[in-house]
Design a binder for these strands. Sequence first.
DNA 1: TAACTTTTGTGCGCTAGCGCACAACGTTGT
DNA 2: ACAACGTTGTGCGCTAGCGCACAAAAGTTA
Lengths: 246, 246
Amino acid sequence: MTVLTNNNDALGNQLLAALPSRDFGRIQPYLEPVSLDLGVVLYESGDPLEFVYFPTTAIVSLLYIMENGATAEIGVVGNDGILGIAIFMGGGTTPNRAIIQSAGKAFRMSVINLKAEFGIGGKFHDLLLRYTQAFITQISQTAVCNRLHSVEQQLCRWLLLSHDRLNSDKLVMTHDLISNMLGVRREGITLAAQKLGGKGLILNLRGTITVIDRHGLESAACECYKVVNDEYQRLLGKSIAKNNGL
Amino acid sequence: MTVLTNNNDALGNQLLAALPSRDFGRIQPYLEPVSLDLGVVLYESGDPLEFVYFPTTAIVSLLYIMENGATAEIGVVGNDGILGIAIFMGGGTTPNRAIIQSAGKAFRMSVINLKAEFGIGGKFHDLLLRYTQAFITQISQTAVCNRLHSVEQQLCRWLLLSHDRLNSDKLVMTHDLISNMLGVRREGITLAAQKLGGKGLILNLRGTITVIDRHGLESAACECYKVVNDEYQRLLGKSIAKNNGL
DNA sequence: TAACTTTTGTGCGCTAGCGCACAACGTTGT
DNA sequence: ACAACGTTGTGCGCTAGCGCACAAAAGTTA
């Protein structure tokens, strides 16, 4: 079942990379590399999970889908973390959809193996819980941001979140996609993106947004971004942000 | 240190009540009853926690406070749960303020004792994690609700959350307080409360809101309330909602 | 090249919620 | 009974974002 290719790539995931080599060595055989295409649904709301995922280059969004079809993002997971915390938290599923927001690679691990490793306690257990707390902060700040900030500010935050989890300045995504994530109108994104483009922070091309001025983007974003990033740094010992300690 | 009064009151907290009596017996000596007054700040943003709290009749709100002083609620904890999950998750603190939203009683437990009990693993460990997952759902749904729903709908959700955690239909709280929680204008709450009053769902009196038609309130709320409640039921084996299995 | 699809740009009327100002109550205390 | 204070009610202009309807590009396929 486990693929025998070079699983050292798994160190591209910061959570796995943070493990002591002894713990990582024990887990490594359980990791199976997978390629994830844009738009693929990894988990559907309420479905029992079969695998957890440690993304390396892929980015996954967690969405809630309303009865009327409207969507809003809860949080985003990339090479900084793990998708499927409901497994070790004990619920087995969540009322959210997990969808690939940016195509790329990940390593998956069966629920059985994950539970066994988590059950041992020790570093892996503690690290997963600390990551979960950081993720809680991300969700919390999403709630705050949704309440208090403009679409333009939120777009900055969202672009930064994506940029941090990518090793490129070129984000392949349409305004329509982003609008679904932020739960706003597509036109609202177009307008906000134009403003950011006018300020020279990003470059809008059909289907892609290129980050030009990372620092400018951070300034244009609300404090929410920084709060989350600082918390990741505090809890996981490293900043997710580019040019900022990574 | 531990007060010797009747700690069986602690069973008023559903998390403690859900423990097997053997586990509860071990924990009971560590529980210290406290009275919590309206407006008291239990945790300040970023402060290392010294105690976790198991509310029985008190209700605690978790808030984020923006640099400009604006506030928004992340989630609410009452007799359904525990305040201070950052302790067993490993972070020791969060960037939030915890403030008493409704005066009442709680049992507190020192961080050292909590960590020790959590470290044993077993039922207590698992229950705390399952509760945390339920709480994550609450935060997530707050984010969604903040994005997509009207103040009136959110007020319904919020009143229901409070009502569930209280053994009275009379909620002692001002419109101003609620507006801080929901992160909206006080006038917006006044207006929404008037509408709900006009529909006969609640009764507005100076400083108090009385729930008249619980079912009507649920209908007037968005689906967010039900999603969270269902998830509490699934994960913790009981509904928090009144007239609904409790 | 031509037809088609996807993505982005633009305009327009509408509404919810904001910020501000101030009036009208209830309570509490003296 | 009166003053003082906290709470709620009301009005008004303003703005961000919505919903809708198309037009204009930019790619894609035939």
